[in-house]
């Protein structure tokens, strides 16, 4: 599905990612974890064309997308949900959803709007409400619903459960599982909330200081005594 090869990237002169190589399999949830400043968020931004790439390759479904601008990457079926500012706060829920289908024809937009709302029925109650009046969990759902309108095959989430109450965080993670199971979407999930995320993951990678330290099955990571103590322990107590 998505393959990253020997990626070196960062912001201007500041290199964040060093020789990162990872593979994200189709219709699976891949979780990327790591301590603060390890480059997890930068990895997603880099895939989406928002940082400076010094060298390396990003391949999506056999297409090289390494140096494509964000809107081209978006049109290929990749959605990126940043941690914050992922909805228009001053627009209503309906306007937000319609903005997500900005380039679609009217009929297609209506159809996708309906199917997207099918996925998050509770949003139907708030259609005329401004997005800033929604709760944190509802906002994440709106953001996911907005990406769904564009029918992505790959969705990348940057810490979707940060700053959410545990119960709401659980709900958000449940809907991510539903995305995989019901819509067959490939998921890349960057999380601080490592244990909860690893429970739903099919695959796990650990980034430290911009380098891949572990790449394999979630249970191997959870059971690895050294890495588990050093990184999972630390990260989960920080949350």
């Amino acid at each position: 599905m998505l393959k990253v090869e020997n990626l070196n990237a960062g912001y201007g002169k500041l290199q964040v990612l060093h020789e990162v190589s990872l593979f994200f399999p189709e219709r699976k949830i891949s979780v990327v974890i790591g301590p603060n400043g390890s480059g997890k968020s930068t990895l997603l931004k880099t895939i989406f064309g928002l940082t400076k790439i010094y060298s390396g390759k990003i391949i999506f479904e056999n297409n090289d997308i390494t140096f494509l601008p964000p809107h081209k990457i978006a049109s290929m079926g990749i959605a990126y949900l940043p941690q914050t500012n992922n909805v228009f706060e001053n627009l209503t829920v309906e306007e937000n959803l319609r903005m997500a289908g900005y380039n679609l024809s009217k009929e297609e937009l209506e159809a996708r709007l309906a199917s997207s709302l099918e996925f998050f029925p509770q949003l139907k109650l708030y259609m005329k409400r401004k997005a800033r009046q929604l709760s944190g969990g509802e906002r994440q759902m709106l953001a996911i619903a907005m990406s769904l309108i564009r029918k992505p095959r790959l969705m990348m989430f940057d810490e979707p459960t940060a700053a959410l109450a545990p119960k709401i965080a659980h709900q958000v993670l449940r809907s991510i599982v539903k995305l995989r199971d019901e819509l067959g979407i490939t998921i890349i999930l960057v999380e601080q909330n490592a244990r909860a995320a690893l429970e739903i993951a099919d695959k796990a990678s650990l980034l430290v200081s911009g380098r891949v330290i572990f790449d394999g099955l979630p249970k191997d990571l959870l059971e690895n005594p050294e890495l588990g103590r050093m990184y999972l322990g630390v990260t989960s107590s920080q949350v």
Partner: peptide, 22 residues
């Protein structure tokens, strides 16, 4: 109008608007 909503969206969050194809 769609144009007006897109304008308001672009004012509030230009980077999000551009990722949506505006």
């Amino acid at each position: 109008t769609k144009l007006g909503v897109a304008l308001r969206a672009s004012i509030e969050n230009p980077s999000l608007a551009s990722t949506l194809g505006v």
